[in-house]
Design a protein around this nucleic acid. Sequence first.
DNA 1: CTGAAAGCGCTAACAG
DNA 2: CTGTTAGCGCTTTCAG
Lengths: 352, 352
Amino acid sequence: MSPGTPTISRGAETWRSTIQDVASAAGVSVATVSRALRGLPNVAVTTRARVEAAARDLNYRPDRHASRLAAGRRSRSVAVVVPFINSWYFANVIAGVEAVCADGGYDLLVLTAPSPAARAMNLVDAFGLDRRIDGMIFVEVALDEADVEELTRLRLAVVTIGQRTRPFPSVNIDNVAVGRTAAQHLIELGHSRIGVLAGQAEDPVNFNVPDDRIAGARDAIVAAGLELDPDLIVPGQFTVEGGRRAAGTLLARTPMPTALLALSDEMAFGAVIAARELGIDIPGDVSLVGVDDHEVAQAIGLTTVRQEVVEHGARAAAALLHTLLGARVEPTHELQPIELVVRGSTRRRAVP
Amino acid sequence: MSPGTPTISRGAETWRSTIQDVASAAGVSVATVSRALRGLPNVAVTTRARVEAAARDLNYRPDRHASRLAAGRRSRSVAVVVPFINSWYFANVIAGVEAVCADGGYDLLVLTAPSPAARAMNLVDAFGLDRRIDGMIFVEVALDEADVEELTRLRLAVVTIGQRTRPFPSVNIDNVAVGRTAAQHLIELGHSRIGVLAGQAEDPVNFNVPDDRIAGARDAIVAAGLELDPDLIVPGQFTVEGGRRAAGTLLARTPMPTALLALSDEMAFGAVIAARELGIDIPGDVSLVGVDDHEVAQAIGLTTVRQEVVEHGARAAAALLHTLLGARVEPTHELQPIELVVRGSTRRRAVP
DNA sequence: CTGAAAGCGCTAACAG
DNA sequence: CTGTTAGCGCTTTCAG
């Protein structure tokens, strides 16, 4: 065995050096190695140097979980829980979360929420993730009383996006305002018969989002002395395909709505497909407004209500790490800005 | 303290029961609890029942990392490494990976590859993640010789997507064929002056992807007795905005290309914006073909070369878990299918 | 300033 | 079938 080769402690595992290996190599005790490597005081400079050299030689990397176990400390990892990953919204939220976590030296676990059916059972139980994780971010995943209690009991730091709970900080947008803004824009353009591409019909993951947005739209419509026809609210599951189907249904209603309000840009994209299929021109025959400001909304000139989704994730993560760093502050409920972005998909209604 | 209250072992931690607590509550040894709860044989049915009841009462959940430590076993978690999360491609790959991991009971860590600059340093070192993880999936993240060696030395199971390395299984598509297919389609429509929206100019993350696709396009073009003008290859960073700029540049060239080949749908969306800004009609003035089959490609009627991205992630994860389950097979290099999807954005070139 | 020793929560022989 | 005894790799008193 050539010099410099890692000292093998026990077994034939030549591939992973332990603190013991480093200790032997440096000619000190494991306790000293531990102190030296963690930059604790009370270690002679010369000793520390020797230890660091040995650690580098051996390519030693401490086992974080053994540390956690021994120290009773946190594991420096957090989880983000989303209904699913491959949608623009969630991917962007996760990106924001990840950036901040990485920056703070935290590992990020991504968990998809169990199906609504499974949601019936204990959330925490479903993940069995206490102990492996210091904190969690729930994105549009409904937490009931029991969940909140359990999470609290487990001393988990929690931040929610899209839901306000008593004990946990949250990052939100005013979804009522979102719906109102979009509808107002359409009303100002002279539209009175407005179809809505909404969320799930049942078992909602995004429980309150569609409702709030619809409520806002209704506010604006009623305020204008009009009414929101329940027949013109069709679920589109927040997906392109769902939006296509929903728009297909809406555009078949008579009289046809003169404007469509999609509760997400992706559903709006579906509406674009449906309109094309039916030979209906946007905005010539019908105006269309979405929500999100997906990059593609710009590409297709979709009028939309923008929200800064990456920022939401980043703020939530920042709040979480902040909590984890011991700040015992009142849970803050941030309200992120929204903004109407007018593009070519909405147009003043042609007077018949 | 009422009956049923968790027995406290040591300290005042009333919130997390240990195997010891369960043992006391059930009146057995910790070893028995361990066996009972893990469904090992050699446990009396009655004992097992008692232990399970106690565990349930105490809301006991084993500490996976303590188990791992004790058993020298794996930690049942894997990491997926991507350049970034919030792009259609990576979000979908991650979704595929996540689904399979969750199904197999593995936790999924999401890591973004350090900047190319940071990539210079040891990848593994950068993440410091040996031991916390059983395996890794690298998605379009270049692994050099040293990385491969280190990963192997650490006994990490590895699967790559978008790169073939000697020792690790991989999931790929034939990117040369992608470029060839797209270009051929344009050529068949009579186009001879084809602009390409390519990848990064320097410091490529998706190192070989753009090159291969361009090579394929060149193959097809040369085979048709034409040539690919280097001035008509402009980097677009695989983003909508990058594509917009690149297309702006290309559409300013004289003579203007009659067709644009975007190496990703997102860049193609950017091209759509650029064309609109310049008052250029697609496909009237210029044809446009993308790669991916983004949901939105359908919405805007974009001709594209489809790849099943979620499937890529799923296959990679399946291969990884397979390896983790001890299958010591030759690393397979799966080649996933691609398919030309013709829509409205490409049209036969008007003879001048 | 440093080492010895006692665990963290759990599993793995090895005896019974 | 079940309890006892060692640790896994690391941190942390507590003595030097």
